[in-house]
């Protein structure tokens, strides 16, 4: 099987300072990978470098495109990369306002990607928006409300619907449950798990919450000072951590 994403020796520098470096891994279709580490460990830099929001200094990010097979997205043309960002890729921001148009209705937010790829049938766009509102458990009657009238958890679910409506194959998530109440978090986690399974999504989730990755991620990558210090099965890394830093990280989690 061809990996959906192959990252090879990816590095991003901020001047002389390391953002992230020497990152390599393969992600296969349907796999969910977690990236954990403390603030400043380079996990968000890595995510943004992979998703094309930052330009890496070295390395390749090879995506298995539908049309042409594996292509390095770092060197591909900007229009092609942006097109990928609207179709096969999705990016869920930690703060919903970074990923939503706050002055546009919920339906318009979901419909934008459809219109961006050429859907010109209002009835069809609206029906799909309504369907996705249902799938992320937002009442259809809220379709014409603006996200500013939504709670934090609803905004985050709307952001997910907006991202998944075009049926992407790879989702980047930056702390998707950060800043939410635990009850809202649980609901979102359940939703994400079901969507991942139903749609066969591959996902890369950056978080500092080990409980989140235990429930969502198949595999784990632990980062410290811009480098990957440990990788493996999520439960193996968490239950039998090999690296000193991972052991410290796991043992530092507060027990409820």
């Amino acid at each position: 099987m061809t990996p959906l994403l192959q990252v090879k020796n990816l590095a991003k520098m901020y001047g002389a300072r390391i953002g992230c470096t020497d990152v390599s891994f393969d992600l296969y279709p349907g796999e969910v990978m977690g990236i954990v580490g403390e603030s400043g460990s380079g996990k968000s830099t890595l995510l943004n470098s992979m998703a094309g929001h930052l330009t890496p200094d070295r390395g390749e990010v090879i995506f298995d495109t539908r049309a042409d097979g594996p292509v390095d997205t770092v060197t591909m043309s900007e229009p092609a990369r942006r097109m990928l960002g609207r179709t096969d890729w999705a990016f869920v921001h930690q703060h919903a306002r970074d990923g939503l148009r706050m002055s546009v209705s919920a339906g318009g937010n979901i419909g934008e990607r459809l219109m961006a790829v050429g859907d010109r049938n209002y009835g069809n766009i609206r029906a799909r928006a309504a369907d996705w509102l249902g799938r992320v458990e937002i009442a259809e009657s809220r379709i014409d409300d603006r996200p500013s009238a939504f709670s934090g958890g609803m905004q985050q679910r709307l952001q997910i619907a907006r991202n998944l409506v075009t049926g992407p194959r790879l989702v980047f998530m930056d702390e998707p449950t950060g800043g939410l109440d635990v009850s809202v978090q649980a609901r979102l986690l359940d939703l994400l798990r079901n969507l991942v399974r139903e749609m066969g999504l591959s996902a890369i989730i950056v978080t500092h919450d080990l409980a989140v990755v235990r429930l969502l991620a198949d595999r784990l990558m632990v980062m410290k000072d811009g480098r990957v210090v440990e990788t493996g099965l999520t439960d193996q890394v968490l239950d039998d951590p090999q690296h000193a830093y991972t052991q410290l990280l796991v043992s530092s989690v507060l027990q409820v």
Binding site: E78, R82, G108, M115, A116, D144
Partner: peptide, 18 residues
């Protein structure tokens, strides 16, 4: 430059929905 005009239709969508 990239002919990304989906957003223009979002405006029209908003019109119809409202």
């Amino acid at each position: 430059a990239l002919q990304e005009y989906g957003l223009m239709h979002v405006k029209l969508y908003e019109d119809i929905s409202q």
